[in-house]
Design a protein around this nucleic acid. Structure first.
Lengths: 105, 105
DNA sequence: TTAATATTTCCATAACATTGGAAATATAGA
DNA sequence: TCTATATTTCCAATGTTATGGAAATATTAA
C-alpha cells in the first residue's frame, strides 16, 4: 500500500460521523446499509451524510450499489485489511512477544 | 475504546510525516528511536518533527523516555491494538469468511 | 563555567475540512 | 404523467491543521 492511499484512508476514518458510518458498515457485512438508513441510525442530515460517504468512497473504504431508489453502501474489507497490514508491517523488530493480537470475526 | 480517542488516534496517523514516524517506531519495537534520529531518517526539520511527535504522544500512540540528552520515542503497541480492535469490532455480521486477516509480527 | 549538542516552544502564514439548508437529480408506483 | 421518496450537488461561513525559522530550554563534557 502506498503512503498517500493509507493517509487518505486514515483521514477518512478520523472524523466522528465517518468512523461511525464505517463501523456500522463493518458490522453489517456484505449486505450493507442504505444511505437513508445510515442517516436515520446516526442522526446525520442528508447533505452532510452524502459528503461523508463520498469521502469514505473516495478513500476506497466503502463501496456502493443501487437497488431501486436506494443506494446501498458496504465496507471494503480488503482495503481495511490492507490498511491494518500497512500500519503493523514488520512490527516489533520481528519479536512477536512484544505485540499481540490476532483478529477474528 | 471511546469514539473520541479513536478519532484522535486516526487523525494523528492521517498525516504523511506522522504516519512515517509511527511506522518507523512500530518497526523499531520497544527499543525506540531518538527524536534526532527520526528527523534525520525522515528529513523532517526539528520544529516540525517536535510538533508531530507531540500530536502522536497526545493521541497515545507513542511514548517517550529521556536518556541523557536524547529523548527516545517508541510506539504504544497496546494502543495500536486497541485501535485496530475498535475498527474491526463485530465485523462481517459474524461471518469470518467475509473478512480475512490474521496479523503476525 | 563555557561550549556543543538535542529538543521544544513560539509565531504567523497558508491550506484544508466541516456543516447543513436549499435546489437539483433520480427512481418507483399510481 | 404526476407525486412521493431517496440521494446528491452547490455554496459560503466557520473552524482546524501544517509548516519551519528563530529563540528558548536542557543536558553533557571539558
Amino acid at each position: 500500500m502506498k503512503v498517500k492511499v493509507a493517509v487518505e484512508a486514515l483521514a477518512a476514518l478520523a472524523q466522528e460521523s465517518r468512523l461511525a458510518v464505517f463501523r456500522l458498515l463493518v458490522q453489517a457485512g456484505q449486505a450493507g446499509v442504505s444511505a437513508g438508513a445510515l442517516g436515520d441510525k446516526l442522526g446525520i442530515p442528508p447533505a452532510t451524510l452524502s459528503f461523508h460517504l463520498k469521502t469514505l468512497f473516495h478513500a476506497g473504504l466503502v463501496q456502493s450499489r443501487t437497488e431501486g431508489r436506494f443506494v446501498i453502501y458496504s465496507a471494503n474489507f480488503t482495503e481495511m485489511d490492507r490498511l491494518i497490514a500497512y500500519l503493523t508491517e514488520h512490527c516489533c523488530a520481528g519479536d512477536a512477544t512484544q505485540c499481540a493480537p490476532i483478529r477474528k470475526c
